[in-house]
Design a protein around this nucleic acid. Structure first.
Lengths: 169, 169
DNA sequence: TATTAACCTATCGGATTACTAGGTTATAAA
DNA sequence: TTTATAACCTAGTAATCCGATAGGTTAATA
């Protein structure tokens, strides 16, 4: 009985070639951190870097960080509604921090802007949901792996505060 | 000058309410691990659990793991083409491992099925791409944070092999 | 009163995911 | 040699999301 092992002998190079194939359509690959969250973090860091606590305008952040102003407006609005920022209208208005940067964990920011931190809903602490295909989480081979990933990510994002990521270099 | 701090006094509860709002539309929330990757890992673990190395049929895995057979077929095909599995046609055919489970790191599986492990392309090792909005990666507040997340995730997925996740419990 | 800047609502193209449909090819048993 | 089996291949689809854009309204300051 001859069993064709296919291209098994060239594992590494084939894996590389598949990765390269995915690279060529890279701009279409979905990423885990949305631009919304990325922009939101950048904006918060920009505001935190200010020595004074005077309001910072959306237009200023938009220009400095190369972010579409209208898109940024909606993000900052969401950050205000979720309690990270305060705001002031009219001339000299803008957004400002209402908490100390040291008190703002990146876990909180990401949960509000992005949603769950876990890679699958069945291991999410704040967005838990049972898998419809899994009869049992104990025997699921993916479950425990994803718990490990979640915990290590949670540790990094919990240890980092807005003060850490906006430290002047 | 009266600056309205908005709802800043209720940070925690508001953050919770935003999380709950996202929960209510949970089924629409994008997750980081696609079903394709999840099914692929489950199928590999299923095959690895077999004591003998006889080919396992798609239909058997499909039934046992509650995965659409046609969808699973395309996934196993990709795993064969990328050098994780061998195959055999006809009666008694199916898919089988061509490497030891101990030699298959979860990083490799996920890179092939899902793509990049990093949350942003600018910190990806295998799928690197410069951000078009960032003038400098050194001064980017998101960059170093995402490197930390990448490294901790990489450690977990690199330490776990197919043997680890398919261990009988 | 004029200007400023936050705030609000609505809409959109492009892309992806998770399938499904309907076949063809190769292998093994009858 | 035929028949059954199971991998292999190509194409298409509905639902959904992302990242923006458009065009305003409201509130605060000069």
């Amino acid at each position: 009985m001859v069993i064709s092992a296919g291209i098994g002998l060239f594992d590494l190079s084939v894996e590389k070639s598949i990765i390269n194939a995915k690279k060529s359509i890279f701009k279409y690959i979905r990423h885990m951190l949305s631009k919304k969250t990325k922009y939101g973090i950048k904006a918060l860091a920009f505001i935190a870097k200010r020595e004074d606590r005077k309001p910072v305008q959306t237009s200023e952040i938009s220009k400095s960080e190369n972010i579409s102003q209208k898109f940024l407006e909606s993000i900052l609005l969401e950050l205000r509604k979720s309690g990270f920022l305060g705001s002031k209208k009219g001339k000299g208005g803008g957004y400002y921090l209402i908490k100390e940067p040291e008190a703002i964990q990146m876990t909180a920011v990401i949960r509000v802007l992005e949603g769950p931190i876990a890679m699958v809903p069945c291991v999410s602490l704040n967005y838990y949901e049972k898998c419809d295909d899994c009869p049992s989480e104990e025997t699921c081979s993916v479950h425990s792996l994803m718990i490990q990933v979640r915990d290590s990510t949670l540790k990094v994002l919990g240890d980092n505060t807005l003060a850490d990521i906006s430290a002047k270099k």
